[in-house]
């Protein structure tokens, strides 16, 4: 037990939590926005993968990591537009549309990566993002290296949470989005375009999911691999439920997942507990399901989630 505590109570461990949680924060906040508008975006896993591939490729050829992030966001937005066409314009099943989008994006990511890079013996890589120590505050002992010596994207993800909360609860756009997700008929009557709001939320979610994927292949790692997402997108769907569709609680969920994932990585490396390492890989998924079981009874999703809106039908 003391050995496990020894692994946890280290500055590096807390820094790792934030690093691991960052892509989850980005994608979970994105998913929260679409679900608040009434659309479940199950394309998330595929969009993250395609974003990861597109961002990596753009960075590899342009030499600019930020251009890679932009490319990933653009590709994510395009995939989300497809999702919008299927679920908003055509009103198709959100479940099957999302799985279709994920299958398509996953296939495209594999296909295009092979087309661009072939099958080299050494996978191509990029010079990944470097940590940016914030002036002054990064010099604070303990807290500095824990919180203020990270990739720029980590700070941006943390800033995204209050920004998302502000937009959702304190702007007309956020009010309209919540109205569209709770009672689209009333929102429509009040002059809000349900379709427009849902499209906008979807595009926003796609951009965040794309960025989350790109973070994995350009910051957390320095190359794209086929298994780079391996279920992180699905975890984000669970985190939105766990976070009760609220930005701050979503952040808490992402940090909790980051904690468990960082812990299993530490324990794997330290060999304190001698079991096959696959059990450690399994741990975050098991805890995600347990957490879902704990909160789902009391969770109240947006009332119009999964329900297509057709203006002419009454």
């Amino acid at each position: 037990m003391t050995e496990i505590l020894g692994e946890i109570l280290q500055v590096g461990f807390f820094a790792a939590i934030l690093r691991i949680a960052t892509p989850l924060i980005l994608a979970t906040i994105g998913e929260m926005f679409t679900e608040r508008g009434g659309v479940l975006n199950l394309g998330i896993e595929g969009i993250m993968l395609l974003g990861s591939m597109a961002g990596f490729s753009a960075a590899y050829f342009s030499g600019s990591l930020w251009l890679g992030i932009l490319a990933a966001m653009a590709v994510g937005a395009l995939a989300a537009l497809l999702m919008g066409f299927l679920t908003v314009t055509l009103g198709l099943s959100q479940h099957v549309s999302g799985i279709g989008t994920t299958l398509l994006c996953t296939g495209l990511a594999f296909f295009l990566y092979r087309l661009i890079f072939g099958q080299p013996s050494v996978p191509p890589n990029v010079e990944a993002f470097q940590a940016v120590p914030l002036p002054l505050v990064s010099k604070i002992p303990v807290l500095g290296p824990m919180l203020f010596n990270h990739f720029a994207l980590v700070y941006l993800a943390l800033l995204l949470v209050p920004a998302a909360a502000f937009v959702l609860y304190h702007t007309p756009w956020g009010l309209s989005l919540r109205a569209v997700g709770e009672n689209p008929r009333a929102a429509d009557g009040a002059g809000v375009s349900v379709a427009k709001m849902r499209y906008q939320a979807l595009v926003l979610s796609g951009m965040l999911m794309g960025a989350a994927g790109a973070y994995l292949s350009m910051a957390q790692f320095n190359a794209f691999t086929f298994g780079v997402i391996s279920g992180r997108g699905w975890v984000c769907i669970a985190l939105v439920v766990f976070g009760q569709w609220s930005p701050w609680k979503c952040l808490a969920g992402a940090l909790l997942f980051g904690f468990v994932d960082a812990l299993q990585l530490r324990l794997q490396a330290s060999g304190v507990i001698d079991i096959p390492y696959q059990f450690f890989l399994m741990l975050p998924f098991v805890l995600t399901i347990v957490a879902m079981g704990a909160v789902s009874r009391s969770a109240t999703p947006p009332a119009a989630l999964l329900v297509p809106f057709r203006k002419e039908e009454r």
């Binding site: 199950l42 479940h95 391996s230 279920g231 699905w234 975890v235 769907i237 669970a238 439920v241 079991i275 096959p276 696959q278 059990f279 890989l281 399994m282 998924f285 098991v286 995600t288 399901i289 879902m292 079981g293 789902s296 009874r297 969770a299």
Partner: peptide
Amino acid sequence: LKTRYRVDDVVTTLLLNFIMFYLMMALVDG
């Protein structure tokens, strides 16, 4: 989990895929 605790079936079935895969790999690796 769906009928007792109202846990969304899409998420659980998806996550259980990964758990079963790791379980299998733990067995064949151990």
